[in-house]
Amino acid sequence: MASASRSASVAYGFLGVALFIGGWQLIGAYQLAGLTWPPFTTVISYLIEPSRWGLFSRALEATLWAMGFGYAVGGACGFTIAVAASMFDRLRPMLDTTSAVVHAIPAIAIAPLFIILLGTSTAPSALSALNVFFIMYVSTSAGLAAATPAHRDVFRVLGASKTQQLYRLQLPNALPSIITGLRLAAPASVIGAIIGEWFGAPRGLGLLIVSAMQNFQIPLLWSTIVLATAISAIAYGLFGLIERLIHARFQ
């Protein structure tokens, strides 16, 4: 019963994706949306043409570095500050509000500040880090707070110190939530990097997107966006897999 409904939803899923790609192809092939909508096959063949690999790989490298920096620095800061907020209750309202308000500032509005403070080549990394930071802060905080009252009671009665409670109970308990945060951060980190690049980075997918848009290079525009989407989806899928393994053990 369960496996039948599961295979049904897989089938529906494939149907949905097939309709999506088929629709894209048809609209492109019959130019239903004009010349700015290339067929799926055109975009893919443009993307896999070896003569363009140099161009794409340079841009991809820059964006991946920004994204990686965003994950490393933003993730580490979000995690550390969430742990601090959980250890020191008094800091918590301040840290919660500050990070929520900073997150509410549109990335594109912070971009100029980062450009001046850090320069055009570091701004994409910094914006990516800022986006990852908030997601990690929220998911880590939620995970740390999710330990059940019964678990906390047992630790208190056993005479556990706050630090022991943190690393023997709260941190392992927060692990699934932290991994979920890393998964959800994937598109956010790409968006941060690309917006940073739009503000004048020397290379990167964002730069390629803007110049292709302005110069009417339609296949280039679509291909670059497919690339940006792919790296986000791959990171998303990868953390999704880890998430499954972790959930099986930790819940």
């Binding site: 009671d153 009665v157 005479g159 819940q251």
Partner: peptide, 19 residues
């Protein structure tokens, strides 16, 4: 007593660590 680890406790919720 708790600080000296001299209490033992069990609740209705077993409160074992699942991991």
């Amino acid at each position: 007593m708790a600080q000296h680890h001299r209490l033992g406790v069990a609740f209705q919720d077993h409160a074992l660590l699942p991991w």
